[in-house]
């Protein structure tokens, strides 16, 4: 078997703050096979966006390794980095602030091509037209500026821009969170179509569990910088094992009045990610917490291909 497209080993990203080290991403491991989608879920501040940005070198990793097609890309040279930009791209959350207001639709989509100095002018124009058609932007928007467009169309520009250099891997950072549901469904379908046509690999970062289930092959649940559970999508929703994942799942308001879901209410305050203690970070809010949870937690394969970081996992789930 060939190497996975993306492999992340013991990745850490810390930020220095006035009060100490903020552990935004703390010892995260995973792989993504080509053509698959890894969903990363968690609540605000869990480090999911930082994780995506660190992999793309928009932030420098503090420690650990990032491998692309089996090759270590943790500390690339300038030249290597610019080559990597052809392979890896990002779609941002907010289609209102991630576009330059002074660049028209076509200029925005053409920008990465210009920066790469690899194409002739006519080639770039043809490519831009083709991309606009692919993402469903009519040619009449060629000279239009972002403020004249609604959120859905703006996000289509963001997608076209990410596709401009023909990447293999795209980090999608909450790409539909700012959109209305009917538009959200259009964009999600577009992203799935593009993945099929172009064999794209996605890392899909979101707080919305129903979206993540719909789009992902595998799911990673993060809590305060650490992976607490990792499993194939269907498995995770069928057999939720970590107490945090259980609470997260039960908290989603379901648009079904006959659904009978018991809410697992979390008490307690969220632990600070600044210089955290070595034990389980969810402990303060966990209904099952005991002394053992003060020890550092190890992520273990509890069921086939289903990893959980909780020392009481077997006990809680009667396994």
């Amino acid at each position: 078997m060939s190497a996975p497209l993306i492999e992340v080993r013991n990745l850490k990203k810390f930020f220095k703050t006035g009060r100490g080290m903020l552990h935004a991403v703390d010892d995260v491991n995973f792989t993504i096979e080509e053509g698959k989608t890894l969903g990363v879920v968690g609540e605000s501040g869990c480090g999911k966006s930082t994780l995506g940005r660190t992999i793309l070198h928009l932030l420098d990793a503090t420690d650990g390794q990032i491998l692309y097609k089996g090759k270590d890309i943790t500390t690339p040279t300038r030249k290597e980095l610019s080559a990597l930009r052809h392979e890896m791209q990002i779609i941002f959350q907010d289609p209102f602030s991630s576009l330059n207001p002074r660049k028209s639709v076509s200029e925005t989509i053409m920008e990465p091509m210009k920066l790469s100095h690899s194409m002739k002018k006519q080639e770039m124009i043809d490519r831009t037209k083709e991309l606009m058609e692919t993402v469903g932007l009519a040619e009449r928007f060629w000279g239009t500026y972002p403020h004249e467009l609604d959120g859905g169309r703006r996000q289509r520009i963001g997608i076209a821009r990410a596709l401009a250099l023909g990447p293999r891997f795209i980090v999608c950072d909450e790409p539909v969170s700012a959109l209305d549901v009917s538009i959200q469904a259009q964009i999600l379908n577009l992203m799935l179509d593009l993945q099929e046509q172009r064999k794209l690999t996605y890392m899909f970062v979101t707080h919305d569990l129903s979206v993540v289930k719909y789009i992902s092959d595998d799911i990673l649940v993060m809590y305060l910088g650490q992976v607490v559970e990792k499993a194939p999508s269907d498995e995770l929703f069928k057999n939720t094992l970590h107490p945090y994942s259980k609470a997260l799942l039960s908290a989603i308001p379901v648009p079904d009045i006959h659904a009978n879901n018991e809410l697992v209410t979390l008490a307690g305050e969220i632990t600070s990610p600044i210089d955290p203690k070595p034990g389980c970070r969810f402990m303060a809010r966990c209904p099952y917490a005991s002394d053992r949870c003060n020890e550092p937690q190890k992520i273990e394969e509890i069921l086939p291909n289903h990893f959980v970081s909780c020392c009481k996992c077997r006990e809680i789930n009667n396994l």
């Binding site: 549901v181 009917s182 999600l188 379908n189 289930k213 079904d256």
Partner: peptide, 30 residues
């Protein structure tokens, strides 16, 4: 919720990814 009737209401429900379904594509409102 049991008898949504207006096509827009139906469209809203169709646009939502559901946790308990295995459908491969959403039905957005065009």
């Amino acid at each position: 919720f049991d008898h949504p009737t207006h096509p827009y209401t139906l469209g809203l429900f169709g646009s939502l990814p559901k946790l308990d379904s295995t459908e491969k594509r959403l039905k957005p409102i065009r």
